[in-house]
Nucleic acid binder design. Sequence first.
DNA 1: ATGAAAGCGCTAACAA
DNA 2: TTGTTAGCGCTTTCAT
Lengths: 341, 341
Amino acid sequence: MTLEPKRPLTLRDVSDASGVSEMTVSRVLRNRGDVSDRTRAKVLAAAKELGYVPNKIAGALASNRVNLVAVIIPSLSNMVFPEVLTGINSVLEETDLQPVVGVTDYLPEKEEKVLYEMLSWRPSGVIIAGLEHSDAARAMLRAASIPVVEIMDTDGRPVDAMVGISHRRAGREMAQAILKAGYRHIGFMGTKMPLDHRARKRFEGFTEVLGKNGVEIEDRDFYSGGSALAKGREMTQAMLERSPDLDFLYYSNDMIGAGGLLYLIDKGIDVPGQIGLAGFNGVELLQGLPRQLATMDACRAEIGRKAAEIIIASLDETADPVERQLTLSPTISYGDTLKRW
Amino acid sequence: MTLEPKRPLTLRDVSDASGVSEMTVSRVLRNRGDVSDRTRAKVLAAAKELGYVPNKIAGALASNRVNLVAVIIPSLSNMVFPEVLTGINSVLEETDLQPVVGVTDYLPEKEEKVLYEMLSWRPSGVIIAGLEHSDAARAMLRAASIPVVEIMDTDGRPVDAMVGISHRRAGREMAQAILKAGYRHIGFMGTKMPLDHRARKRFEGFTEVLGKNGVEIEDRDFYSGGSALAKGREMTQAMLERSPDLDFLYYSNDMIGAGGLLYLIDKGIDVPGQIGLAGFNGVELLQGLPRQLATMDACRAEIGRKAAEIIIASLDETADPVERQLTLSPTISYGDTLKRW
DNA sequence: ATGAAAGCGCTAACAA
DNA sequence: TTGTTAGCGCTTTCAT
């Protein structure tokens, strides 16, 4: 064992060590083309012995192929997105494609930057949350000439493919369920996030149906930062002190809804008799609360799986065509906090 | 506008469009070397006009530099890891380094595979959870000749640098606090994860101190899958029916602890008088519960930040040297479920 | 079944 | 300040 200056190993090193040409070594390592068993064995032994790790940069440049799929999402702290990732992963795992995650923090400028960075690695496809992007971002997506799947939301026109739910419709359906159950004095709590277009669309759908039925949101409040559970508790308390006549609270996500629910239980208030509650997302996490919050499943894992399938199908000429504009249907679960009519 | 066969743009195209040599275009786009303002403007205009996105693959191959940092973690569903990522991000954001995340699902074989994939992109550094890796993985890490920071845990010897807490010690300290508070009949609940070495070490430290004080765990139970909150509730109920004499329940994570706490509150059991409780992690999420679970902060964001700083310092010859073996000290928070002595 | 040559798109190093 | 040349480590293509 001689000490050489540290330099990553190359195909050349394996070639030298095994006495086989670089080209054949390359074939063995990629399982391409016909190679005799004897040669293959020699090469594999040498590669393992040396601890050779192929250089994908060079490989990608030469072959013009990159097995990466860019996945661009607003956040990792909101459990919704890790769940989508899990769905994407479960499908890509069976291929040689690798997801690479970029986070935008809900900021359009950051989205643009992250997208630029990722596209500069020439990925094979892009999965990106939402339909709202800057013009520059949309231009990049189009110019990349690779499959692009916009996920989560289907209220709008995609650059290429899309999979998600209609948040506007989700808001409408929840409003209908609430009205049917007989509630009329409704308060709303959500995140202070003008850039969360999906939350905005749910809210718009929600107020639209209320409005058509002559009902208006009587109180509303928005928070930012901090523990959602704690915020839900505090905001609920504050809102009920301010507007004691409310008979329903609609929360833009399950975590603050759960905070509200715990507060009401604490106070001994009759839920859903005196006050009804509903959130959004269907986060599994909350099973185990004393009572189940009414909510609506956002089909997160399914969205991830479908998006990955669309990418795969787009890349494979021989594959059966798949639906490229897919709207999933979330279902309401009434839990214990929304009266059934 | 003529329709050409779709082909990604190259430096060459920008060079042609601007009448400036490829080399100078390259310099402009990277802000390297002296370029006249006039030339720079011409180039930037042409690049923007065309919508040129540089090809990092070619750039990386030529310059032998890749601005990626591989981050390898067991899971994204456990909030702990997204929080570490946030810490890493917050520091890397101020450099041109980009984290790239790989997930191992707590499986050594998968860790090995993910590591291999990531190293084949020749990243500038690696941040990897835990100190336990297969021999092959450790060999790869060493052979890569790049900074490697092992995070979360410091009970063991790192390949290169490490940042984390001593989980064994965390377990010991919690045991001491519990004994000092006077509890003697202790039950334990955790995840059924033989491969979660940190949970194992906490448990070992915990039982070690109990043992030295003549106390033994009187009942234990492990779960896998499902909603942690719900599991905590169910397991707590089952354990107390089985072992009604217990006066303390130690949970391997805060989520199941919270489930247990909610169950006990529901039952009207006196916490921490009749039964004390403690978890681990200090998840912010749980603020907002009716009562605060005793827990121990795992310093997640701090670990992420420090790890990123070590990578940066290792890459920058001129930087001040930083501590490369860093053990942070978690602190107990007693909350409302562990008596102070 | 194996090898040799060319070149992927960029940047380091040097020349002008 | 700008341009030229020679590769980075691999794969494609074509020859043997």
